[in-house]
Design a protein around this nucleic acid. Sequence first.
DNA 1: TAATAACATGAGCATCTGTTCATATGAACA
DNA 2: TGTTCATATGAACAGATGCTCATGTTATTA
Lengths: 110, 110
Amino acid sequence: MTEEVAERVADAMFALSTPSRVQILGCLLEGPRTVSDLVEALNMEQSAVSHQLRVLREHRLVSAEREGRMRVYGLYDDDVVALLESAVRHVERRTRASQRLTGRLRRSSG
Amino acid sequence: MTEEVAERVADAMFALSTPSRVQILGCLLEGPRTVSDLVEALNMEQSAVSHQLRVLREHRLVSAEREGRMRVYGLYDDDVVALLESAVRHVERRTRASQRLTGRLRRSSG
DNA sequence: TAATAACATGAGCATCTGTTCATATGAACA
DNA sequence: TGTTCATATGAACAGATGCTCATGTTATTA
């Protein structure tokens, strides 16, 4: 893996490295949403949501369209869906692995 | 997506959000490596490598075995390989998409 | 055109991160 | 046992990050 690829991977993953951003993306996974929708759904301040949406925009994880005076955000494309899903699958596998592990520990040495 | 899942995803992705850590993982993708191997291959200081290896260990992305006075690191399991590969695929798709985009821009408004 | 609604943006601050420097640990070896 | 090699760890510091507060921008409405 070249240094440049490593930087790009890190840059992309950085966008997913904060709970607030992941929550926004998780919300958009269900369909396009307005900023106010997100503010209400995620219990965050409007300014915080806008700031994080900017990061997500700059990393091309979401895209926006005007609609009147609102702005409707959605996942940038199917590649983002795929990336999100593989990330979620990873933590799900990790969760199951932990459960198996603690189960084993419980059975063996208490 | 629940708040807890979002936190776990963010936590996992955080481990991949730095070029140095991604480079280490990229190196380990080719096979197990000693700390000195990594230091040499990545042109990083030994202390920096060890610090980042700790982060990767705590996030269960790598595991270590003693071997004499060395320590051999490897990717934690196949789930990590899958995660890494999907991340790399993502940036590759993004790169191709950018090339198509700039190509289009060149052709149209120049 | 003034007021308002929806959103974006800049400044500032507390916190976190990655690195380096110095030192500790632990195994092999003289 | 003392030394050396391979690695880990703690302190500290510069820079980055995420949030809030205040304000700017753009589009609707009175």
